[in-house]
């Protein structure tokens, strides 16, 4: 029905609340937006998100669409800004992940250099219960599963929220809380003993 209608007229009809005009506009331009987002360097998933967000923005801004305005430049401005926002947030996410990874690496390095309690306890260590405890703690820490160790680092050292960790790992917040408590109680066992 609207296949022969120009983009400008489609948006005028969309402005008037015509659902079929929007459907035609969406069909006509979704692929273009997706392709453009990918060309800008967004991943498939991010490009799809950006494309959807662009159409949602058009929907919010259609009330200010002026009759006689060229559609494609107007639409391009919305799409371009949305893609840039996604690119920036993706860049921030990568930087944050890299930083977190580096921090984690450095904490593991620190733990590597932690004096391990091997063999008989020396007199000095006997006189210093704290170092004994630290060594025991180190042992217990090493006995934890790698994902439990990572979780402890993320929660205690990096102070990340369960929500962020959940988004990263794909595990539910409840499962993470349980795992954290379990790991913590395994570590705390030293003070009880």
């Amino acid at each position: 029905m609207y296949k022969e209608v120009s983009d400008e007229e489609l948006l005028n009809l969309y402005f008037e609340g015509d659902g079929r005009a929007f459907d035609e506009f969406f069909k006509r331009h979704f692929g273009r937006v997706l392709g453009y987002a990918r060309k800008l360097g967004l991943s498939d998933a991010d490009a799809a998100d950006a494309a959807q967000e662009s159409f949602l923005k058009v929907h919010r801004q259609i009330h200010s669409y002026e009759r006689g305005r060229k559609v494609l430049p107007w639409f391009f401005t919305i799409v371009h800004n949305t893609c840039l926002t996604h690119l920036r947030s993706e860049k921030r996410r990568i930087l944050r992940e890299n930083k977190a990874h580096e921090q984690r690496e450095s904490h593991f390095q620190d733990l590597k250099h932690f004096p391990l309690q091997q063999g008989p306890v020396s007199e000095e260590q006997e006189n210093n219960p704290l170092s004994l405890e630290d060594a025991e703690l180190r042992k217990r820490f090493e006995k934890l599963k790698s994902e439990e160790r990572t979780l402890l680092c993320e929660r205690i050292v990096e102070e990340q929220s369960y929500k962020d960790i959940s988004q990263k790992t794909g595990k539910s917040e409840a499962a993470l809380r349980k795992m954290f408590q379990r790991a913590l109680s395994q570590l705390k066992g030293i003070s009880k003993g």
Binding site: G31, R32, G35, Y36, A48, L72, P73, F76, V79, H80
Partner: peptide
């Protein structure tokens, strides 16, 4: 970028 936008098309991959 605008030219790129005009030429862009979905390749149907995703």
């Amino acid at each position: 970028e605008y030219q790129m936008f005009l030429e862009a098309a979905d390749d149907g991959a995703f």
